[in-house]
Design a protein around this nucleic acid. Sequence first.
DNA 1: CTGAAAGCGCTTACAG
DNA 2: CTGAAAGCGCTTACAG
Lengths: 321, 321
Amino acid sequence: MAGPARGVTRPATIVDVARVAGVSRQTVTRAVNDMPGISTATRERVLAAARELHYHPSRFGRGLVKPSGRTLGLLVADLTNPYYPELAATVLRMAGEAGWDVVLAEPSTSGAGDFAAGVDAVLSFTGRPFVGPAAGAPNLPVVDVDAPEPSPGHGHVTLDMAPAVEDAVAHLTARGVRRPVVLDRPGRATPSARAELFTTAFARRGTSAVVVAHDVAAPWTATTPTADAVVAFNDLVAFGVLRELRLAGVEVPGQVRVLGIDGLSVGRYVTPRLSTLALDMTEVARTALDLVLGIADGRTAPGTPDASRRVVHRFVAAETT
Amino acid sequence: MAGPARGVTRPATIVDVARVAGVSRQTVTRAVNDMPGISTATRERVLAAARELHYHPSRFGRGLVKPSGRTLGLLVADLTNPYYPELAATVLRMAGEAGWDVVLAEPSTSGAGDFAAGVDAVLSFTGRPFVGPAAGAPNLPVVDVDAPEPSPGHGHVTLDMAPAVEDAVAHLTARGVRRPVVLDRPGRATPSARAELFTTAFARRGTSAVVVAHDVAAPWTATTPTADAVVAFNDLVAFGVLRELRLAGVEVPGQVRVLGIDGLSVGRYVTPRLSTLALDMTEVARTALDLVLGIADGRTAPGTPDASRRVVHRFVAAETT
DNA sequence: CTGAAAGCGCTTACAG
DNA sequence: CTGAAAGCGCTTACAG
């Protein structure tokens, strides 16, 4: 009963079970996989040995020899923002239909190297190009979504907010907005791309928008008390703004109009309902998944125009504008 | 250049690359893994061949021979309800620290069999015991969370709402609630366990609660227009109730008090803030993960008392009660 | 710097 | 009903 490796507990393998049960390896396989051509007595003896040794088949040994599904690595920036779980849920369901498993990870959580070792393709929703291990993963199919610039060898999906920004700004100015505030992500030297889209669009209409860092220490209400519209960095920030305004007794959209970005489905529960630049998560998921699976299957070559896709936001006017 | 399998495209293996590059298998390994002891010229020739063949190392072949992290299968009922992503995010982060990857799946998405084939342990948040493949996965470590009854051979984590229900009902009756409505999940013959907890607790205080199926076709406002408190099946339902009441001009908590269940973190954005029976997601994740990894590492035996854990909800009185 | 040999844990034919 | 042999794709010593 004393195994070769005393002290250190090595997981039991099929040969350990075979030895303990006094049979051959292939008989263990028959018992464990419930195959025909084995006597009941033998099967039970083998299963008892398996139980005793806590034997569980190695997925590597098995995967090497049996056809098995492939695994997609899904990297998302921050699972705390419902935006990413919504996206992940859609990717998960679609990938499942295509026979792919999905390993979910955040960049902070797992070393990118370890992560890449266990997957057959990568879909990265982190806002920057996926950086795999320097070596060991040549030709790993990778698709970056919404990365600021295309990474050579990767497929990429661009999320284009510009048309929706135009629509939203036209909508707001038509309703008399003249002193809009754009709440930008804090801690940056320069305005974000989305903030610039808004200031440019407003400027084209003769309206100058103020960009303010969304900072709890210096709330925008103090900086720009006369604002008649707030463009939030994303829906989550907009929800916070709506709450602030409610508590301050400010009417939305009567006194201040509020616009979010993302189109989170939890938005259906807030009152008044948030106007937002919505992304069709299903479309994003389908586009990104189609691309990465296409690369994995050799249908699409990274570097070709077909490996570069685009999804646009859509302005959804609800109750806050 | 014509491989042995013409027509059907079989993924290239290390020997294909070796053949095309005119080197041995181990030289391909050296090039691909950026190891020393290989000339620059050879390395480049090999990498060029790898590129040409779209070669990517099999994770099975590699996993068999290199020490690698293990994979946890995380099964959640419904990624559409933020409750599950919140839980998943916490599990993901903690599992990552322990060196485990996480495959996320919904029961509907992937055949349970396929799912179980690729993982070393399973954590099931589906409200019922995990059912793996009938065969092929003996001694797979499994932990069920919040399953109605313990499944033999599995570890289980019970989520106990009873103490929080007591606190909430005491709170509500102390504030004069006499005609509470419990919104139950629709389409069931008998009231849910949580609905019964509430009716019992109210009854003990001499108050009879009405259980109504949460059904858009027959809204609770029509069924029980005189209700002075609404206990929702979960936070998401409660958010919808809050919106209904707002639109109907009903004051919360002045005219009707509202209670949710779950303690979703998105609740921080709704106004007024929802009172709820909150679950500490971190505690649930830590408890469940500790248990399943303990079973996987042989520290904990399923069936022993230690393989059965309990986490309690906590009543959080916010602005709606 | 390069290759021949052994082996990781498993299953699939093939023999008895 | 059971076992000996071959092989899945890879890496790790070991020889040259």
